[in-house]
Design a protein around this nucleic acid. Structure first.
Lengths: 115, 115
DNA sequence: TGTCGTACTATGTCTGTCGTAGTAAATATA
DNA sequence: TATATTTACTACGACAGACATAGTACGACA
């Protein structure tokens, strides 16, 4: 067993992405690196998971995309940036509250080492 | 938004069931009630989720089933009881450690009220 | 007799995740 | 200059846990 299974995390990739986008707009590759850094390599979001999350969240109105041309940004390739919407912020808040509750519930069923 | 979405809990129904079975063998309906009580009605496992978890976990060797005849138990209908296996205990321990890690990771992306 | 609670089984759908693969430009390295 | 690596994606399909819906059947109680 190495690290965190995907089933546990399911539903929380969105929150990680939204948390990052709350600070400033960003794009796939950068978000992926940010998540890695923030968790000290404990969690690495899969590329396909990330990009399918973008599609889903844009469809749901949580984020908006815009293309940044390389000449405008001054470096690298053309990227698709995402920014969080007001609706996305509200969704994030909701999910945070849900997390508090979830944690509380799950913790009833957890035993830490003590036999 | 009412309570906890299934996606968050996904993967943790098993842990709840195993936690209960660690104390003593039990059966579907009772486990369902125990979970409700333990969480003060904050979480109610769906019937189909519960029974499909049984099937899966027995196949994986985490639990074993045995039928308890009504005359033997002294009351009610015939029930299928489940008991946890050694392998199930080990799996439970693993999952608990995973939870600690998961919590740590997710919490980096949670903001509680403070704007 | 009918309703409610108990104790399930069967079947099929949904959706987030992830494996695999491929594309292509920019940058680093030899 | 040629090649490898990093960056930045897209496309497609499969998997599995959760869950909706439906049905069965027995027992208790009024």
């Amino acid at each position: 067993m190495a690290g965190i299974s995907s089933d546990v995390i399911r539903g929380y990739n969105d929150i990680m992405i939204l948390y990052i986008l709350k600070k400033e707009p960003s794009y796939g590759y950068e978000i992926s690196k940010t998540i890695r850094q923030m968790t000290q390599d404990k969690y690495m979001i899969k590329e396909t998971t990330l990009y399918s999350a973008f599609t889903r969240m844009e469809k749901n109105g949580y984020i908006e995309s815009y293309v940044c041309e390389p000449d405008e940004s001054g470096s690298g390739k053309k990227r698709t940036y995402y920014r969080i919407t007001e609706y996305g912020r509200a969704y994030y808040e909701e999910k945070c509250e849900e997390w508090i509750l979830t944690k509380e519930v799950v913790e009833h069923f957890i035993q830490k080492g003590e036999e």
